[in-house]
Structures are given as C-alpha cells and as structure tokens.
Design a binder for these strands. Structure first.
Lengths: 212, 212
DNA sequence: ACGATTTCTATACCGGGTACACATTTTGCG
DNA sequence: CGCAAAATGTGTACCCGGTATAGAAATCGT
C-alpha cells in the first residue's frame, strides 16, 4: 500500500482512519447499536457530515475491508490451475486461508470479539447478509467467466449460492465452537470439515457442468 | 381458519385487514419505498400508532404470510414417510407445491408483480434475506428433531443452509425467466430442475448422516 | 499568487421506529 | 346490571440514521 504523495488524499485518509478508530473503539465498548453517529463524530472530533462523507452507512465503519474478500475469491478463480476444478480450487483456498491465519479466520480472543459484536447486532447481521449476497454475485460472475458462459448462468448461480451457504455455516459453526471451547484448532478443524462436506455436495450438484 | 367469536379480536382483525389492504394497494401503485407509514395510516383511516400496533415493521405489511412457509416445512418433515429421506422429502415437497400452484409459485402476472415489487426495494430484499435466515433455522431444527440430534447439529445447519440456498436460487431464476419469457411452464421447469440439482448436491453432502 | 477543485461543516429536513400517557371499548364477574 | 380490569386506538414528543444543500476552508495546478 504506497503512501500517497498527495497531501489532500493523505489528510483525507487520516481523518478516515481517525473516524474508523473512534468508531471501532466505541463499538467494542458499548455494542454497535448503542453508539450513535453523533457520538462517533464527537469522539473523532469531526462534524457529523464528515462521517457520512467517508462512510455511506454506519455499518460501513464496522465492515470496512469487505472488498478484500471479493478480490481474494476473484483472483483465486482467475489464477486457478486448469487441472483443478473451480469448486475444488475454492475448497483448497479455504484450507489455505485457514492455514495462513487470515483476518476473520484467526480464532483469537481479539478477532472473536469482533465477530461477537457483529452477532449481537441485528443491524450488523443484516449487513453481513447483504455482503454475502454481493459475494455470491462475485462468485457467480467469476465462475461463469471462467467457464465461458453468460454472466447470469443459472448453474453458476446455484454453485455460488451453495458455496456461500457452506462457508457461512462453516464460519458461524467454528465461531460457536471457539466461543464455547476457546480452542482455535478445534474450531478450525470443524470449519474445514464443514467446508469439505459442503464442497463435496456442490461438486455433486454441479456434475456435468464446467464448475465441478 | 375459524371466525373468532370474540368481538374484540374480530374488530382487531378487521382494522388489521384494512391497514394491510391499504398498504398493499399503495405499495403496488408506487413501490414500497415511495410510500410512507403516514400515508398508509391516512389511507386506512387510522392513527399512525395504530399501524405500528399491528405491524412492528413497515416490511411486515408486505411480507404478511411468512409464517405459512415455516409451518409447511415443519409439517412436511414431521409427517414424512420414514422410507423417504428428509432431503428427498423436501425435494418432493417442492414439486408438489409447484404442481399445486401455491402462492409465490403461481407464475401469473399478478403474483409476479408482487415479487417484482419486492425485488425493486432494497429494504424488502433485506427483509427477505432475514426471513430466509429464519426459515433456515426452522429447517435446521426440524431436521435435527427428525434425526434425534441436538437442535444445533452442525450437519443439520449445513443441510438447511444448502437447501435454502437452492430454493432461493431456483425461485429467483424462475422469476427471472417468467419476467423475460412470460411462460409459466418454462419457469416452473427451470425451478424444478435447479431444485433437483441442488437437492442432489445436498444429499451428496449429507452422505453418512441421517438427513440424506 | 490566484482560480478551480475538493474536503469539511452547519443547518434543515425526511422517515421509520419507540416511549409514554390517555381515552375508549370490550370483557369477565360479582 | 354495573363496574373494575384488560386490551385497543391514538396523539405527542422524541431518537436516530440518512439526505440535500449551500457555504467555509484547505489544497492544488499553473
């Protein structure tokens, strides 16, 4: 991430970070729904409109790096080994990401606090669902492109929907286990077991298509 | 649905219907997001607070009969033929519902207007996602109960998640086809083809569990 | 150094939703 | 019947997220 030479964008990024930090601190302290945008603005020492200038929705201050997920999935499919099917590529990606202890899959107390904060807010759960829908659209497009089919190919939609459902269930189950047992390895094992089960099912559903 | 003898509840249901009708008409005329609760109250000739007394959320005036879906799924699993697996039971349920031209699966211009209104509103799409989550929870619980496992059995969660994803993709794809081709039979065929594909995948994923 | 562009900010507003208080209606019961 | 209790309808006032707009201040290119 290169430091921009521009003073303007440098300052802009600075205030954005200030707002983001203030918001994160308040969210963790008191829960997402018990923090108002005015309080965040005050804590960051900026005007209320400045907050909305940087973040269209209040939830965007919480889910900040949601574009990374899109890029990871897209790139994994773009750069896949032609000998490995798309579904299998994504299954292996999940294993790799868990091994690399990527954010969200770290299973430490700190990262789980973050997830717990999200689970405790109806607003954030709604936003998480919307983000998953966007991810499904990305996967659909990437799969269709990979197979040289139309962007809205029904099979691609089904595969993407099944995969997202698998990852969601696996992720939440792993979180549940970690919260209860405080055992990161156990959580990861459960996550990967569910991903493998789901991937196997998706492959079966996609038999006869280019996606399996 | 027996007519309640109670005058109180009879009146209550009457005003509820009045509100619901007024809301539906306005939603169809101008789209969900272009109708305010005040306008609905005025159209139904009741106070604003009365509206919120009957419908906790504005979206609830649109998605009214969402409890029926829950009951249908629960009952289908409770009364299933022991010789037919849960997943196969639900696959056959889908076929039966389509054949019975149940609401939502009628594929007539009128019912598709309803769906289109929902598709055109970000608010309603969000609510639809939430309802699907609740349905997944119901299916999870019903599957687990059927198998005599704990209510939060991870396999049941995965099966429910995969099934809901399948139905959602199939439903939306059928809607898309109907909107484009105005051919109800073609839409139904596409829906059932995707349900069959998805169900086959779920069965594969659930191999070795009581759900397949 | 100056005009154009961008960022920040205040003010005013909209709309969904809640809290609360109060009137009215209905019901159950002595 | 008559009356207390419970439930329903409704007005008022408020909170909060989000938008529109217009102006002030900082930054940039030349």
């Amino acid at each position: 991430m290169p430091m921009p030479t521009d003073r303007r964008t440098r300052k802009r990024l600075a205030t954005r970070r200030t707002i983001s930090f203030a918001a994160d601190r308040l969210f963790r302290e008191r829960g997402f729904d018990n923090v108002t945008v005015d309080e965040i603005a005050a804590a960051a020492d900026v005007g209320r409109m400045t907050v909305f200038n940087h973040f269209a929705r209040k939830e965007d201050m919480f889910f900040d790096r949601d574009e990374e997920g899109r890029d990871i999935l897209r790139n994994a499919l773009r750069q896949r080994d032609p000998a490995v099917s798309p579904v299998e590529t994504l299954r292996r990606l999940a294993h790799r990401l868990v091994a690399e202890r990527v954010p969200f899959l770290r299973f430490t107390d700190a990262s789980q606090d973050f997830i717990q904060t999200a689970e405790d807010s109806e607003t954030l759960k709604a936003r998480a669902r919307a983000i998953r829908d966007e991810l499904a659209a990305v996967v659909t497009a990437a799969l269709a492109e990979d197979a040289g089919r139309e962007a809205d190919d029904p099979d691609a939609r089904l595969a993407a929907g099944l995969l997202l459902a698998t990852w969601t269930v696996a992720f939440l189950e792993a979180h549940r286990i970690f919260r209860q047992a405080r055992d990161g390895e156990k959580a990861k094992a459960a996550l990967l077991a569910l991903v493998d089960k789901g991937s196997h099912g998706v492959a079966a559903a996609m038999a006869g298509t280019p996606y399996a």
